[in-house]
Amino acid sequence: MNKNFISYAVSHRGVIRELNEDAYVELNKYNLWIVADGMGGHEAGDFASQLVVDVIKAEVEELPVSSISTEMLIKAIQSANTKLLEYS
């Protein structure tokens, strides 16, 4: 049975910050939702959270759905961390 599911994501900057530094993406094909909480008050927190989401998304989308695993996701997160450290 093919079911169509709908999901959505919303983030709020809160009451203190002027800029919402959170980043997220939903990859329905993979049943995967990625959220990176921005580091409010730190320089380029919005860029950092978006970089993390983008790197993980790119690595996941290179693979067929059947190869997504916890180990693969851990490697994608580690790759995002490496990219973030290189940038900083």
Score class of each variant (00 low, 15 high):
residue 55 V to C: 12
residue 15 V to H: 11
residue 68 I to W: 01
residue 73 L to S: 02
residue 26 E to N: 07
residue 84 L to A: 09
residue 23 A to C: 04
residue 19 L to A: 12
residue 62 E to F: 15
residue 78 Q to Y: 14
residue 24 Y to L: 00
residue 31 N to D: 00
residue 61 E to K: 12
residue 30 Y to S: 06
residue 12 H to R: 15
residue 32 L to Q: 06
residue 16 I to R: 11
residue 6 I to H: 15
residue 83 K to P: 02
residue 28 N to M: 05
residue 70 T to R: 02
residue 28 N to D: 01
residue 2 N to P: 08
residue 50 Q to S: 15
residue 48 A to V: 13
residue 82 T to M: 07
residue 34 I to D: 03
residue 21 E to F: 08
residue 30 Y to N: 04
residue 22 D to Q: 00
residue 15 V to W: 05
residue 39 M to R: 07
residue 87 Y to I: 07
residue 71 E to R: 09
residue 1 M to C: 12
residue 51 L to G: 08
residue 58 A to Y: 12
residue 63 L to E: 14
residue 70 T to H: 05
residue 49 S to T: 15
residue 56 I to E: 04
residue 64 P to A: 05
residue 22 D to K: 06
residue 40 G to H: 07
residue 70 T to E: 08
residue 83 K to N: 14
residue 49 S to V: 14
residue 35 V to G: 07
residue 59 E to S: 11
residue 58 A to G: 08
residue 87 Y to F: 10
residue 45 G to L: 04
residue 38 G to P: 05
residue 77 I to M: 02
residue 49 S to I: 10
residue 25 V to F: 08
residue 26 E to I: 09
residue 56 I to N: 09
residue 68 I to T: 12
residue 19 L to D: 13
residue 40 G to R: 00
residue 11 S to R: 04
residue 20 N to F: 05
residue 12 H to A: 11
residue 77 I to D: 03
residue 25 V to Q: 01
residue 37 D to P: 01
residue 10 V to F: 10
residue 65 V to W: 02
residue 78 Q to S: 03
residue 12 H to E: 15
residue 39 M to D: 10
residue 23 A to N: 03
residue 41 G to W: 00
residue 36 A to K: 02
residue 55 V to G: 03
residue 52 V to L: 12
residue 40 G to E: 08
residue 4 N to P: 01
residue 50 Q to D: 12
residue 45 G to N: 04
residue 3 K to D: 13
residue 30 Y to K: 04
residue 56 I to C: 15
residue 69 S to G: 05
residue 22 D to F: 02
residue 39 M to C: 07
residue 79 S to V: 04
residue 58 A to D: 15
residue 84 L to S: 11
residue 72 M to H: 00
residue 67 S to P: 08
residue 61 E to T: 06
residue 75 K to A: 03
residue 1 M to W: 07
residue 26 E to V: 15
residue 9 A to K: 13
residue 26 E to A: 13
residue 7 S to N: 15
residue 59 E to F: 08
residue 83 K to D: 13
residue 12 H to N: 11
residue 81 N to K: 08
residue 24 Y to D: 07
residue 42 H to P: 07
residue 64 P to M: 07
residue 2 N to D: 06
residue 47 F to R: 03
residue 51 L to H: 14
residue 31 N to S: 02
residue 46 D to S: 15
residue 23 A to D: 11
residue 40 G to A: 11
residue 78 Q to K: 08
residue 44 A to I: 06
